[in-house]
Design a protein around this nucleic acid. Structure first.
Length: 574
RNA sequence: CGGGGCGUAGCGCAGUUUGGUUAGCGCACUUGAUUUGGGAUCAAGGGGUCGUGAGUUCGAAUCCCACCGCCCCGACCA
């Protein structure tokens, strides 16, 4: 491709709308252009990257027997009512009406469509298992779109769905999918980690997220420094250090804490470790009465974990001050379990505490040396409801937790029979008996990958694309292309040689100054650059620049093509 | 939806507080000249519903009201 005939719209300044570095660079490099909030046009350069990502994804899906289909983006309300999600999906589902006033939605995901398809076509165990996938535009009316294509409303996603006669078959495909994902993200040249994940609103049992490691990521990943254990913080399980309480050593004692409302302040006043204190949180319960939740003073509540506890009302809601006054007779900051007769849910760490400090249910006072059973009711329920913290022992006991941030680019789920049950997707087994299909679903955020790759690979001059998804593999930047015959002839010859050899090459023949060409090539993140001008050509040499290492070396013009071909082929092997 | 900020040329901004000729600057764009190995210089140009609507006023980018859009911070997810 010749740059003079291509669509390149780079800018020096980044638009004020962009906060995240990848967003800024995508706009500056002219990969995308915003049409409206969370909705973007992909320009030729950006789309070229998307296509390269898609190709890798397709190849790996096909390798494990996935069959590509293309489902409609616009879906009728009926199938969503059938699955029950027309009501449950909420405002994120973009609902539209046709001319007959019938309800439709723009698909945020395709479980309904695919189940409807498969249940009508697949009748026998002989046709199972079956995996289909598509690469398609989705729409989710996000509460807050942000970071460009990272969290867009309209985005491109690969979604795959598998159907099985039994759970073993599902696990089989799930494992194949897991390996395929590992191959995909490896080939994309990304540093990533697969982690145990929450199954969220899609539902189901087993689930892993594929997280691209980046400080700007919205997710927190907890991983073990010794073992393979890794999980989203939302799910990361705390280790049980001890299983029983120590015996009480002291009688309960009321202490004045006139201004100390937080555990940290109380611990400081009493000169005790923060881990000896207990924090009290009050949520609305399902029975209309408040639920008291106890967490060790140095820990944080995990909202996902607590949301799974059936006594707690969904969505998770703190009770208001009046209710606290009514049930605890004090202000928040002095709440505690002593004298409270309602539901008490405690973290496992709290359950094994003795002689601890908590609020006295009396404004201005806390209690020291409190013990369950002796001083207050035993917990109604004991559960793991806290966030793990860096340095905690991992649940396998084999290492310590470390935390880092990640961008979720892929997610695999064992859906089991959630949708086949709701929509009656059944088949006949060997014995002619009707059975529910087992299902899995597997997503990859194609457009998000581009942003994630940039987030992970950039420097002050711009993007450093991993080779396999770079918009071009090689750029030729001639000095004085329009003035110097020798430069133009050599540049053209190199260009056609590389083209014939199958290299994805861009010849920057724009009539710009050298500085602009070089700056653009670096902004665009093209892995290799050949610079040539009369100065070096007269010595029979050209200059080869490696975007990633920053290395510049002079190469003999004669052997340049095979030399660079070898470099390119080496990348393509992976 | 709650809180904060913004809306003036493709991009980045000034002008708004205190209303007053023809609305400015830089980048980008067009033409010409000199240039050309790290984002050139000079000259001449094109490009504006000042977010929209309704008001106040002799006069509104500027003041008032309403609406719309965008960005950032909290509840969602690939």
């Amino acid at each position: 491709m010749r740059a003079s005939q291509y669509y390149i719209s780079t800018t020096k300044e980044s638009p004020s709308e962009a906060e995240l570095i990848s967003h800024q660079l995508m706009l500056r490099a002219g990969l995308i252009k915003r049409l409206t909030s969370g909705i973007y046009t992909w320009l030729p350069l950006g789309l070229k990257i998307i296509r390269k990502v898609e190709t890798i994804v397709r190849e790996e899906m096909n390798k494990i027997g996935g069959l590509e289909i293309l489902m409609p983006a616009v879906q009728p309300a009926e199938i969503w009512q059938e699955s029950g999600r027309w009501e449950f999906y909420g405002k994120e589902l973009l609902r539209i009406k046709d001319r007959h006033d019938r309800d439709f939605c723009f698909g945020p995901t395709h479980e309904e469509v695919v189940v409807d398809l498969i249940k009508k076509d697949i009748k026998s165990y002989k046709q199972l298992p079956l995996t289909v996938y598509q690469i398609q535009t989705k729409f989710r009316d996000e509460v807050r779109p942000r970071f460009g294509v990272m969290r867009a409303r309209e985005f491109i996603m690969k979604d795959a769905y598998s159907f099985h006669p039994d759970f073993d078959s599902l696990v089989d495909t799930y494992n194949n999918m897991y390996s395929a994902y590992t191959n995909i993200f490896t080939r994309l040249g990304l540093k990533f980690r697969a982690v145990n994940a929450d199954t969220g609103s899609i539902g189901g049992t087993g689930s892993h997220e594929f997280q691209v490691l980046a400080d700007s990521g919205e997710d927190v990943i907890a991983y073990s420094d010794e073992s393979p254990y890794a999980a989203n913080l939302e799910l990361a399980e705390a280790f049980m250090h001890k299983s029983s309480r120590d015996t009480a050593q002291h009688a309960m004692q009321q202490v004045a804490t006139p201004t100390q409302k937080t555990c940290a302040e109380v611990a400081k006043l009493l000169n005790i470790p923060l881990s000896n204190t207990v924090k009290s949180l009050v949520f609305e319960g399902i029975d209309g009465h408040p639920v008291l939740v106890l967490i060790r003073g140095d820990h944080e509540l995990n909202e996902i974990k607590i949301s799974k506890i059936k006594q707690v009302k969904q969505p998770l809601t703190f009770v208001n001050l009046d209710i606290i006054q009514q049930y605890f007779n004090c202000q928040p900051g002095f709440i505690g379990p002593v004298g409270f007769n309602g539901t008490i849910i405690v973290d496992r760490e709290v359950n094994v505490m003795s002689d601890f400090v908590c609020g006295a249910n009396l404004n201005g006072y806390h209690l020291n040396f409190v013990n369950f059973e002796r001083d207050c009711n035993e917990p109604t329920l004991v559960a793991d409801i806290r966030n793990i913290v860096s340095g905690d022992t991992t649940p396998d006991g084999a290492g310590k937790f470390k935390l880092c941030r990640g961008i979720e680019v892929g997610h695999v789920f064992q859906l089991r029979t959630k949708y086949s049950k709701a929509m009656n997707a059944v088949y006949l087994n060997q014995h002619g008996k009707t059975e529910l299909m087992e299902m899995g679903c597997y997503g990859i955020g194609i457009s998000r990958i581009v942003a994630a790759a940039i987030e992970q690979n950039h420097d002050k001059n711009g993007i450093i694309f991993p080779f396999n998804i770079a918009p071009f593999e090689l750029i030729i930047t001639p000095a004085n292309y329009h003035k110097s015959d020798i430069t133009r002839t050599n540049a053209d010859t190199l260009y056609s040689s590389f083209r014939q050899a199958g290299v994805d090459v861009l010849l920057d023949d724009r009539n710009e100054r050298m500085g602009s060409l070089l700056a653009d090539s670096e902004l665009l993140g093209i892995p290799y650059r050949i610079t040539l001008g009369e100065k070096t050509l007269n010595e029979g040499k050209i200059e080869l620049y490696n975007r990633k290492t920053g290395e510049i070396k002079l190469v003999e013009l004669d052997g340049a093509v095979p030399h660079i071909l070898a470099l390119v082929k080496n990348h393509k092997k992976t």
